[in-house]
Design a protein around this nucleic acid. Structure first.
Length: 342
DNA sequence: GATTGAATAT
DNA sequence: GATATTCAAT
């Protein structure tokens, strides 16, 4: 059994974008200086100015690495053998500084060298766009946390997406729950309609479920136990979150930034980066039980970065764009990962 | 005081 | 409709 677990575990790891691939949304935000300069307050207002500012900022290729969740001691749960390789790898800590003055750190980074500080946080950041990739990350995190522990903060930490805020996650989670609710209704009591296929999207197509409602959600398989709260998979033993982390961050970031810039300049290129989304919910043997971190107390500690062993697929960084929609002209949006969806 | 989850606003 | 923001409850 453990082997199975480690198996899926390895898989899901691999499917996830490495921390390096994730796009840092934070920093590309308008710098305090620029913001002040343009007196940016409302996204609807000085849109063009803001856009320009952001564009400038992104061009500066400023990669901000907001210190990932601090590598906790990770209680090497004595009894349990680490399902995988790499664990307790200190390279994680390589993330330079993370204690001391985060204030100075963030402000310095955000300020892009200038002395900005407060305003940076006050500024509005562009709307976050939940791309299928980002959503997958979200689902994976929730899946491994277990619905029980899947709360915004924890999810956010697990996702380790730079710049992703708790409210971002909370908002998305709210909607995701609604979605799950619908799925449950359809699959369990649903009767006729498409419910059948079971909430599990696993299969190919988007399942019979009238998921048409949510293309985004339909794009990522929903773990089985999500739909059956009554019967948790393996209540007896849980897997301690394995700090996959073996990956250390290099300065690829700059390259990534370049890629991002390219993506912005040449959206067509995105196809090149487009990645097939793995199917988390379709294990070969059909098993899907792993109450991750089923311990409340573990929340704060069990959070680690996950890093797939190897990755060469370049993922474009954020894409800052103006929404050309009628009423919302000038609305800035933040796009993590390519927006291509299947 | 911090977080959560739902309601409400944009 | 999607995401953000607000707000009461924990």
């Amino acid at each position: 059994m453990r082997e199975d677990d480690s198996n899926w575990f390895a898989r899901w790891e691999e499917e996830l974008p490495s921390p390096d691939e994730l796009m840092p949304i934070t920093q590309t935000l308008i710098t305090p200086d620029l913001a002040l300069a343009f007196d940016i307050r409302n996204s609807t207002n000085s849109s063009s100015a803001a856009a320009a500012a952001v564009a400038a900022a992104s061009n500066s290729l400023h990669q901000n690495q907001p210190v990932p969740p601090p590598p906790p001691p990770l209680p090497t749960s004595s009894g349990l053998p680490s399902p995988n390789h790499n664990n307790g790898n200190p390279s994680l800590a390589t993330s330079q500084h993370n204690s001391s003055e985060f204030a100075a750190d963030s402000s310095a980074e955000l300020g892009s060298g200038t002395g900005g500080d407060e305003p940076a946080r006050t500024l509005k950041r562009p709307r976050l766009v939940w791309t299928p990739q980002l959503h997958k990350r979200f689902v994976d995190a929730v899946a491994h946390l277990g619905i029980k522990n899947a709360v915004p903060k924890t999810i956010m930490q697990l996702m380790s997406v730079d710049g992703l805020t708790r409210e971002n996650v909370a908002s998305h989670l709210q909607k995701y729950r609604l979605y799950l609710k619908r799925m449950q209704g359809l699959s369990s009591g649903g009767g006729g309609g498409g419910g059948g296929g079971g909430g599990l999207s696993g299969g190919s197509s988007t399942v019979g479920v009238d998921a048409a409602t949510d293309h985004l959600f339909a794009s990522s398989p929903v773990p089985a136990h999500f739909l059956h709260p009554g019967r948790p998979p393996n209540p007896d033993h849980f897997l301690p979150f394995v700090p996959v982390s073996a990956l250390q961050h290099h300065h690829h970031q700059q390259q990534m930034a370049v890629a991002a810039a390219a993506a912005v300049a040449h959206p067509q290129l995105q196809g090149q980066y487009h990645r097939q989304m793995g199917h988390f919910g379709s294990p070969p043997n059909g098993q899907f039980d792993h109450p991750f971190l089923a311990r409340p107390a573990a929340q704060q500690q069990a959070v680690h970065r996950m890093g797939p062993p190897v990755h060469n697929a370049p993922v474009p960084g954020y894409v800052e764009d103006l929404e050309s929609a009628n009423g919302n002209a000038g609305r800035k949006v933040l796009t993590l990962f390519p927006t291509g969806d299947d």
